[in-house]
């Protein structure tokens, strides 16, 4: 039997082209090449399958040129006629995860070729695509490659061969809302008692029926008179006073910063910078107003277009930072914003 043909999608980082400074790298097709994590997949594929082409694309390029990049890549995949398409795994890289999910979804929808990807559960790409694309749950960093690659590769083989895909717990993909029947070795009462005993003993246990978590916050009423409103700036783009006095981490931030901009009319390369390690910092360091628009808001304040710009801004680095952390940061500084009589917030993200 002929070998199963696989086309593999990775970003500029895993292709060893470069980090954030190369995130604008345009989509590229390499026929007959196995690149980076493709090697790990090939180990599991053995004699059954081979990567016949690798597609590489910069994370920023993909997300900023979504339609163009998607069309280009789908056309290449069509031309290569693979039996299955694999993207990533993306771990906790947000733009990469979104790219993997987007392109897998497009390949399935437009070409009818099955696809599989992998990423960390908090990757925004997971929430967006796990119901549409088989998404292997991975660790939050590339250190989890050894565990993730075989799961991705095994599921890819199954999909290519048209074999029955087992339940999410068996295959390692994120639950996608599809129920799969299978026989448990132990009967329900026994499993329930075990779970209870573990719970009572403070040992870890896993529910078999997790409750869905809907967390939607209704929009607040609009600001009535913006010319009287006190506006505060918040950012996840990591803008900090030059030297990063509170040492906000470049990724997985453990805290946020609160900085006074009373009398500051313009953020300059001499006074402010970004602490963010997840995007090319050149432009933000050159002119931090590109992320935190203090200059424009000062002008509008003078012109009476807004009431005032709040003298404190809040900032952190939204790069692999846990959802629970950012939630806690914002809970805390929102109380301060309220206490200071702030009427509205502009939150900028990179």
């Amino acid at each position: 039997m002929a070998k199963i043909k696989v086309v593999h999608y990775i970003n500029q980082f895993f292709a060893q082209i470069g980090g954030e400074e190369k995130a604008e790298y345009p989509a590229e097709l390499r026929v007959g090449e196995v690149v980076g994590p493709g090697q790990a997949l090939m180990q599991t594929f053995g004699d059954e399958a081979e990567i016949t082409a690798t597609i590489i694309c910069g994370d920023s390029y993909f997300n900023e040129n979504l339609d163009k990049a998607k069309a280009e890549i789908v056309a290449w995949v069509k031309e290569q006629k693979p039996d299955v398409f694999v993207a990533g795994p993306a771990f906790n890289a947000g733009r990469y995860g979104v790219a993997c999910g987007t392109i897998c979804d497009a390949v399935q929808e437009e070409l009818g070729i099955p696809a599989v990807t992998g990423m960390y559960e908090e990757n925004p790409g997971a929430d967006m695509f796990k119901d549409k694309v088989y998404t292997i749950a991975t660790a939050n960093s590339a250190a989890g490659m050894r565990k993730a690659a075989p799961l991705v590769a095994k599921l890819a083989l199954k999909l290519a061969k048209g074999e029955k895909v087992g339940a999410s717990v068996e295959e390692g993909y994120m639950p996608n809302g599809v129920r799969v029947n299978f026989f448990e070795e132990e009967r329900g009462s026994k499993r329930a008692v075990k779970m209870l005993l573990n719970k009572l003993a403070d040992k870890p246990f896993v529910t078999e029926y997790p409750m869905p978590s809907f967390d939607h916050v209704a929009p607040n009423p609009a600001v009535k008179d913006i010319t009287k409103a006190k506006i505060a700036l918040v950012t996840s783009g990591g803008i900090v006073p030059k030297g990063n006095p509170d040492h906000i981490e470049s990724s997985s931030a453990s805290h946020y910063g609160e900085y006074d901009i009373a009398g500051v009319m313009d953020l300059t390369a001499e006074t402010y910078e970004t602490a963010h390690g997840g995007y090319d910092p050149v432009y933000a360091n050159e002119d931090p107003d590109r992320v935190l628009p203090v200059d424009v808001l000062r002008d509008m304040e003078k012109e009476g277009k807004i009431g005032e710009l709040h003298h404190l801004f809040y900032t952190t680095v939204g790069n692999g930072t846990a959802v629970a952390s950012s939630k806690a940061f914002a809970e805390e500084f929102s109380k301060k914003l309220l206490a200071d009589g702030v009427d509205a917030v502009i939150l900028t993200s990179t």
Binding site: V234, L337, S349
Partner: peptide
């Protein structure tokens, strides 16, 4: 963060 600010009762716009 945007959701927590909204939850606190402050109207917020996300520029991204």
């Amino acid at each position: 963060m945007v959701k927590e600010i909204e939850r606190a009762g402050i109207p917020v716009v996300h520029v991204c």
